[in-house]
Computed example of a mutant assay.
Amino acid sequence: MPLTLSMFEGHAVNRSAAERRAATLGARRSVKKDYQAAWLVNAVRCVDLTTLAGDDTGDRVRRLCAKARQPIAPRIMEGLGLGGMDLHVGAVCVYPTMVPHAVAALEGTGIPVASVATGFPAGLMPLDLRLKEIEWAVAEGAHEIDIVITREHVLRQDWQALHDEIRAMREACGAAHMKAILATGDLQTLRNVYAASMVAMQAGADFIKTSTGKEGVNATLPVSLVMIRALRDYGAETGYRIGFKPAGGMKAAKEAIGWQVLMKEELGRDWLEPDLFRFGASSMLGDIERQLEHHVTGRYAASHRHAAS
């Protein structure tokens, strides 16, 4: 849709209220035993299993894809009574040059391959080169593209420039889904976070995402709450449902439950499905598997008993 300033200009965000609301979520909603296990299994479905390291190789990506196909060990699935369930992660996310390896390894599984692009993580490249990177990744088979915005546009509140940039990226993605990474740790204020979220959605983002995982501050519950409220306001105004992806800094299984509680309370049950919610938290998957084994056996297993992602 065209840039519509009236949807966010002058929209105040009360930081203290957002922090209080976020702080109450874990305290007011505690799930235990079988219910906790069910929430953790659902979290697995929403994980974007990711490797974005400078020393990535085809072998590492193939190993990651094997974990994506079978994220929880069969003995644990049997113990949970889910032996017949085809449980897999939401997507595998890699750098553009690793896309062909991931596509080949996941062929026939239905697991989408996501690629970062547009000069990830800083995004400080000429726009035409960033668009070519998107087009290259899509041509190699990427089903989803995680783009990064130019933070300067937000800091200068040049909303038209931000809208034009994201719209061009949306067009370059073609049929691939586009997740717009806002790098919220760089945006200074929650008001900027709300406005950037709105502009990204107006420009055609299918998901809005908190962070690259490379900023000093990544996903936090107060920032996520502001983005989710923007999602809700945008949906009420337009009738369109946009997805949400927190990323960076999440390691513990209990955090997976906390974020799902946030989504359910603010947006409803539909946002507990991978088409509208993803975690960018690969290391968290290991702790989820560990907690599920404890639920089944009553013991915490040694780390060597869980395949590394």
Rank of each mutant, 00 (worst) to 15 (best):
Q202A: 08
G10V: 00
H11F: 14
M198W: 11
G298M: 08
K132T: 12
D275W: 04
E133Y: 09
M98E: 05
L106M: 04
G108Q: 11
A18R: 11
D59R: 10
A161P: 03
W259G: 07
H163T: 07
L106A: 03
M227A: 03
H295C: 01
R191F: 14
A302L: 01
C93H: 12
A252T: 14
Y300H: 12
C173G: 03
A104K: 13
Q157C: 12
L182C: 01
Y240A: 05
A175P: 00
R305L: 04
R167Q: 14
M250P: 13
L64W: 04
G248K: 06
H11K: 15
P274V: 05
D56K: 03
R69Y: 06
I72N: 08
D275K: 01
R232W: 10
L267I: 15
Y35S: 08
L231C: 10
G235V: 06
S16G: 09
K254P: 12
A253T: 06
A23C: 01
A38F: 05
A142D: 05
I111R: 09
R241Q: 00
I111C: 06
A256G: 07
A176F: 13
Q202L: 04
A18C: 15
M263Q: 05
D186K: 00
R229M: 05
M178Q: 13
F8Q: 09
A73N: 15
H101L: 00
K254Q: 11
I166E: 11
T97C: 00
H295P: 05
G119M: 01
H143L: 08
D48H: 15
R62L: 04
E266Q: 15
E265A: 05
K214D: 02
G26K: 01
I288D: 10
E165V: 08
L182D: 06
E289K: 07
